[in-house]
Design a protein around this nucleic acid. Sequence first.
DNA 1: ATAATTGAATTTAATATTCAATAAATAGCC
DNA 2: GGCTATTTATTGAATATTAAATTCAATTAT
Lengths: 153, 153
Amino acid sequence: MGTRYKGTEKEMTALNTFLKLVRAAESTLSRVNASLSKSNLTESQYAILDALYHIGPLFQKDLGNKLLKTGGNITLVIDNLEKRSLVIRERRAQDRRYFTIHLTKQGKSLFQKVFPGYLKSVIAEMQKLSKTDQVELQRLCKVIGLTPINTKK
Amino acid sequence: MGTRYKGTEKEMTALNTFLKLVRAAESTLSRVNASLSKSNLTESQYAILDALYHIGPLFQKDLGNKLLKTGGNITLVIDNLEKRSLVIRERRAQDRRYFTIHLTKQGKSLFQKVFPGYLKSVIAEMQKLSKTDQVELQRLCKVIGLTPINTKK
DNA sequence: ATAATTGAATTTAATATTCAATAAATAGCC
DNA sequence: GGCTATTTATTGAATATTAAATTCAATTAT
């Protein structure tokens, strides 16, 4: 299973680690996302509702940064959520370049309906590891996630 | 950083681990994928070229299984690769439901051009961890990636 | 105050992704 | 041999995603 490339040990280890990391994230994610399908929420839509619910109203800009998505993408996903009246855009008075995104009553209520199942499926996935191993995985992922020092410019 | 939800320790640990795992994979992936943009290859396109190069000709079905993608998706990505003459479809004589996908000369040559930079960026990412930590991460990811026993049906 | 710049959001074009429906080919069975 | 079910691939609709170009608002520099 995995890569068939034959290289040095260092290369093989790196490719293997990378592949397993990505596979683990994708397969877990696909199972967790399945818990959202009943509510016709996509992963991106859920992530936005989650952020708004747990943090409060946010600018589109901040949502993009938080979810590591581009501005154009956030625009579209917010559009789709707004069509279903799950969120609303509010133009900011002090600086009219900004839109504050608010969860509506319906959005809040849908999130509350969906969250328990989501949490349950996350727990089911993560329980494959002991508490100790989960903490260890967190440590390793934190290192991996770090952006390298930007050497140019 | 991360989730603002306040729950039991078990819930918090699971949510945190899940979030960090997904973040680590996504951020690493986005940096590695940047090495593909010069050749105008998307992640999916690269993955297909990689599989064909290192394994050999494959049926679309097998590509889909290997890359964990749906049939419809594979059809489209192969279409796009075929437009650029990087792969060709060959209908199988014994069973005409199958298409065997072959790498063309151009596809092989493009892959050989792209692979070193890809490998280099994977190594750069994974070198944030010691060899020991990489092996440990592989172990944890292997457990996480396991599909739970299918209890129904 | 005007010009240039920065910053937020949108739009557009291209690709990806899934799901559901369909078509085409084969396999299994009676 | 001819129906039926299964399997492979394609298509279409909906959503996602990015990058680049554009618009509009605010700020900075001259």
